[in-house]
């Protein structure tokens, strides 16, 4: 697998560590972490990423706002975005997909689920 850059935007250090732990099992990935939406946007403008994983409930800027901003950026209009959240209701999922997210993972999180999702997203043309 060629090198893929993945950005994790998540305010919880526990979750960031778990997601990193899962994604590091993929060969040739480079992982960058951001602790909120604003930090995430800064990192997105400084580099080009192949996959974005973002939490929804975060301080300063939440994940939904971030997704709508990222989708307006020509560099990221086709980049897969996966939302990770505690909100398991169907309307929350639909809202995230309508804003431009490609997938939606609910907590509690398992490393295996994150890994499978990343593999599937990075395979897509």
């Amino acid at each position: 697998m060629p090198e893929h850059k993945i950005l994790i935007i998540e305010d919880s250090p526990t979750m960031r560590q778990l997601i990193c732990f899962a994604l590091k099992r993929l060969p040739g990935v480079r992982i960058v972490e951001a602790s909120d939406g604003v930090d995430g946007l800064k990192k997105l403008s400084a580099d080009k990423f192949d996959l974005i994983l973002t939490d929804i409930n975060m301080p300063i800027m939440d994940g939904l706002k971030l997704v709508s901003l990222v989708r307006n950026d020509a560099n990221y209009k086709d980049t897969p975005i996966v939302m990770i959240t505690t909100e398991g209701a169907q309307e929350d999922r639909e809202r995230a997909i309508a804003l431009g997210a490609n997938d939606y993972i609910t907590k509690p999180i398992q490393a295996g689920r994150i890994l499978d999702m990343a593999k599937a997203m990075l395979k897509k043309p």
Partner: peptide
Amino acid sequence: IIIEIIINLIG
């Protein structure tokens, strides 16, 4: 951290 573990890992 305990709160995060209970939310994120236990649900």
